[in-house]
């Protein structure tokens, strides 16, 4: 063959300059020698064997058909020991958490819902809410409330940063949180018809200081609208008040956040009031949650891409709706603590 001498030459040349990978050189050189010496013989042998008439192969002695044995093997029963689902959520952990959190939900935040009837009893829907509080207290509250009132699981999408934090990331996953990846949202909404909660403001919401409270940040790049369009599900805007006051930020430490790799590190009023424990304790602000009427998009699902301007318009419209609702609820609110 024309290219035959070229290839062993290259292989023997390549490892030679470096003395380190002795094993490679050895394999290459010994087997090269062996190959060169035996090559013609092997090939001639092989060729003669292979060109024997077809009947020779029928003469071979055979062990029982192993392949069939594999196919006949029964389907092994599952040996699962936990109830962690494919998203990492565990109903057992979730119900424990519900038990632990319910007193806080009822007596500390005294959460009050409006428009719960807007949430469908079945079918996928994307819940979109404003996000606030240094360690956001709105996500557990919304998830708990809906699971309690509608007995439907809610999956919360969170920043990937969560996943990198030991213990917290794992707990969040077991309690129904998952990384905010469009594929995850699509699968949950379109294929599994679940409720998914997302905060389009991202970390910009909770990291704003308390002087900017209830002023919505940019709603990302409208990715949530695109996902809802692709999945063919309605968006349910939710306006939450109370979370801002439960853990207000008085200052931020951006350089420290950079060092740790966290999106932000806040100094909260709670820390000033309770000392280091303040990182754990919320102020008992009264929570009010209002579910706005569903926003459906009259558009074909599962498309490759959607008009960017349409997405941005819809995203802006939903943001305005939530902002309006927030202002209205704040106008009606007499006291931060008593509602």
């Amino acid at each position: 063959m024309a290219d035959q001498p070229k290839m062993p030459a290259r292989t023997s040349k390549k490892p030679a300059p470096s003395p380190a990978p002795r094993r490679v050189t050895k394999i290459a050189s010994t087997s090269k020698r062996a190959a060169l010496a035996n090559e013609e013989k092997i090939l001639a042998q092989l060729q003669s064997k292979l060109q024997e008439p077809h009947t020779t192969t029928t003469e071979l002695v055979h062990v029982p058909t192993v392949a069939d044995e594999l196919e006949r093997e029964p389907i092994a029963p599952s040996a699962r020991r936990s109830d962690v689902d494919e998203w990492g959520r565990s109903e057992r952990m979730r119900s424990l958490a519900r038990k632990a959190y319910d007193p806080i939900y009822k007596n500390w935040f005294r959460a009050e819902w409006e428009g719960l009837e807007n949430i469908p009893a079945d079918g996928g829907a994307l819940l979109v809410a404003n996000h606030a509080g240094a360690i956001p207290s709105d996500a557990p509250c919304i998830m708990h409330g809906i699971e309690k009132e509608l007995s439907r699981p809610v999956y919360g999408l969170a920043d990937n940063y969560f996943r990198k934090v030991p213990v917290v990331g794992t707990m969040w996953s077991r309690l129904g949180g998952l990384p905010a990846h469009p594929d995850n949202a699509y699968r949950l909404l379109r294929e599994q018809k679940q409720l998914v909660l997302v905060f389009p403001e991202g970390a910009k919401g909770p990291s704003k200081s308390s002087s900017e409270r209830y002023q919505l940040r940019r709603f990302g790049r409208g990715g949530f609208v695109e996902i809802a369009m692709r999945a063919g599900v309605p968006i349910l805007p939710i306006a939450v008040i109370g979370a801002e006051e439960s853990m207000p930020i008085v200052a931020r430490l951006p350089s420290m956040a950079r060092v740790v790799g966290a999106p932000y590190i806040p100094i909260t009023a709670n820390m000033l009031a309770f000392g280091p424990l303040g990182a754990m304790i919320y102020f008992p602000a009264k929570f009010k949650l209002r579910v706005l009427p569903p926003v459906s998009f009259d558009i074909e699902p599962d498309q490759e891409r959607y008009s960017r301007s349409r997405i941005m318009d819809e995203s802006e419209r939903i943001r305005d709706q939530i902002q309006e609702a927030l202002f209205e609820m704040l106008r009606e609110r007499r006291s931060v603590w008593w509602g």
Partner: peptide
């Protein structure tokens, strides 16, 4: 193995083209 033909080659198969051709 029962009827498999074993051919010793070097780690990166320099005589492969020949084998593929010879054994069709």
């Amino acid at each position: 193995l029962d009827r498999t033909e074993y051919v010793r080659v070097d780690a990166n198969y320099s005589i492969l083209a020949k084998i593929v051709k010879a054994a069709r």
